[in-house]
Amino acid sequence: MSDDAPADTMRERADESRVKLWVLTEANRLLVVALFLAVVIGLLLAVGLLVPDPVGFLEEGDPIETAFQSFIGATITGVTIVVTLTQLVLSQELGAVGDQRERMQGAMQFREDTAELFDTPVSPPEPADFLRSLLSVTHDRAETLRDSAGDDNRLADLAQSVAENAEGVRDSLSGARFGQFEVISAGLNFNYSWKLYAARRLRAEGGGGDEEEGAGGVDSDDGTELSADQQSALDDLIEALELFGPTREHFKTLYFQWELIDLSRVILVASIPALLVSSFMVLYYEVGSFPALVPGVPTPVLVVSLAVGFAVLPFAVLLSYVLRIATVAKRTLSIGPFVLRTTDDGREFDWD
């Protein structure tokens, strides 16, 4: 493979700023909520200070009452949608005993298969430890492939790429626990899709063949074929890479369910102060009913700006969680050797 191969980390592959990806994925969701509310309140204060007569504008007609009545309706509607969403998530956990037994059998069969791969009696129970074990096996098999590569630079380059990527992701999982985004983030930084495609292509070009590509394969571009040791090491590496895909997808699904349940709880709590403040602004607030709070800032402008911040709190919570879920979903739309980014087109790479 050439130096044009796609980068391993999600940030490098996405070709987006570190700050943007930090806000979308890595940052604590409550911190994102706080940043969003600070921007909203700050913008409202800035506009209020730029308007020639903000107090007169707020006293003319009933803009405050109209706005906060809308906030009340939006909050109630949003809570209803969140409750429905929670029911949808929980519905996947409900079912007859036969369905639950089938799920159990599938899970146990998967764990037996992975235990055989790990060469241990039982595979690790926690997702972070499971991924670390899988990445350790992948790293070791990549090292075996590099040792058997000999003068074949294609195999050596692939093995080095897999080993370095697996080692880096494995180290980042140290101390991580499920429910923390670090587990999913680490999985996103292992670019297994491209590595699996590269390994399968090398196997086909080296004469090893593939079930999908026909038995016997084709000769490599330089006329050489893989030796028996190289073929065996490459097959072992492909087996580990193929297992990483469903493993990451399973943990991603569990994480999405975890996040959606957390979202439901947080947004339900956030809706209480939002409804209380909005109701107060509709029923009791009158411009001029508060004494001066901050010198140089008209009190009605400050009160309305802060009240709007409370009113949009449920929306801010929803926005912060959905941004991360949507970003992760977009980066993991495909499973296996399918690469959706146009910059990762296999035709752009030199395999000689």
Rank of each mutant, 00 (worst) to 15 (best):
S2D: 10
S2K: 05
A5T: 14
P6T: 12
P6N: 11
T9P: 15
M10A: 11
E12Y: 10
D15W: 14
L30I: 03
F36Y: 07
V40G: 01
L44Q: 09
G48P: 03
L49K: 09
V51M: 07
P52D: 10
P52I: 08
P54I: 08
V55D: 04
F57K: 12
F57W: 13
I64E: 01
I64T: 10
T66Y: 12
T66S: 15
V79Q: 03
Q87D: 04
L90Y: 01
G95S: 00
Q100V: 13
Q100K: 12
E102H: 15
Q105E: 08
G106K: 14
G106H: 14
F110H: 03
E112K: 09
T114C: 08
T120A: 08
P121V: 01
P124C: 04
P125M: 06
A128D: 01
L131Q: 04
R132D: 00
L134K: 07
T138N: 01
T144M: 07
D151L: 11
N153G: 14
L155W: 12
D157Q: 10
L158P: 03
E167T: 05
R170T: 01
G175F: 10
R177G: 13
R177K: 08
F178L: 07
F178R: 04
F178I: 07
Q180H: 05
Q180N: 05
A186C: 02
G187S: 00
G187E: 00
L188T: 02
N189M: 06
N189K: 11
S193G: 01
K195Y: 01
K195V: 03
R200S: 02
R201L: 07
E205N: 06
G206M: 06
G207S: 11
G208C: 14
E212Q: 13
E212I: 11
E213Y: 00
A215N: 09
V218E: 15
S220G: 15
D221Q: 12
D222Y: 03
L226S: 04
A228V: 06
Q230L: 13
D235V: 12
D236H: 07
I238K: 03
E239L: 15
E242W: 04
F244P: 00
G245F: 07
P246Q: 00
P246H: 09
T253L: 08
T253D: 02
L254Q: 13
F256Q: 14
L260N: 09
L260R: 12
I261P: 00
I261E: 06
L263R: 09
R265S: 08
V266W: 04
V266T: 00
I267Q: 07
I272W: 09
I272V: 15
A274T: 12
L275K: 06
L276D: 01
V277T: 01
V282W: 11
Y284F: 15
Y285C: 10
G288R: 09
S289K: 06
F290H: 09
L293F: 02
V294D: 03
P298V: 08
P300V: 02
V301T: 08
V308I: 12
V312T: 09
P314F: 03
P314D: 01
A316D: 00
L319D: 04
S320L: 14
L323G: 00
A326N: 13
T327P: 06
R331T: 04
R331K: 05
I335W: 04
G336D: 08
D344R: 11
D350P: 07
